[in-house]
Amino acid sequence: MAGTPMLEIKNLGKRFPARAGREPPPWIIQDMSFEVAAGELLTIVGPSGAGKSTLLNIIAQIETASAGEIVFDGEHIASPEQKALHPGLNRRIGYVTQDDNLLPWRTTIDNVLFPLEVQGTLDDAARARAQELIGAVGLAGFERYYPHELSGGMRKRAALIRTLVYDPPMILMDEPFAAVDAQTRTQLQEDLLRLWSLKRKTIIFVTHDITEAIALGDRALVLTQRPARIAAEHPIPIPRPRQVKDIFTMPGFAAIYAGIRADVQ
């Protein structure tokens, strides 16, 4: 890997604090190490309950680490102290969570503008950028709708562009498309790849869907069942731009799929 990595995870460990009078809880993540290069789209595959969300929560700084180190852009950020955490580390780490977490009392446009509003960077140029993103993911015409008036896929798109609108260099994505139907998911994946090709963000994309991991990623990491460790690493040399809906017809797909499948327990 060329140059210094954007993110380094070194011997990361996590377990939740013991309750009085009980056995110490098991490790959820243990001795995990990997690197992410700037501009890379890394996918992480693991079974449900493997600790994937916990891993992203730790990188996003909303969860403490119990052991190990995280270096983001040359800065040590892991801490066992909740108070020492800086969620989103000064807006440089965006996080698209599994639930869309849209504010139910805000319309699509106001949800998308929320990060800019709270950062005090809301001006006409920012509004124009938000409007452009809304158009790019097909939400034009739905700006004044409340989340409960949107479909699941639309809410995912709104959540995605709420993160893109303030342009964090790194984005964590936690199975963002898991809860939508297959066709919508393919569309969302295409949207994501298109947006990513325009602005090469560093993305960590967690999924339990092997096809999704191959369709999106430059590289896929496979996690073990608890405690989560890196079981294997698979480069994905399928050329870009990729057609997500035809990904399984690409040469090499079958071999990569079989390789990952064998490593996922």
Binding site: A60, G88, V118
Partner: peptide
């Protein structure tokens, strides 16, 4: 909802 609070923190809300 703690998730909404986490979201707001991550996008840089005080």
């Amino acid at each position: 909802d703690q998730r909404l609070i986490n979201m707001a923190r991550i996008v840089g809300a005080s």
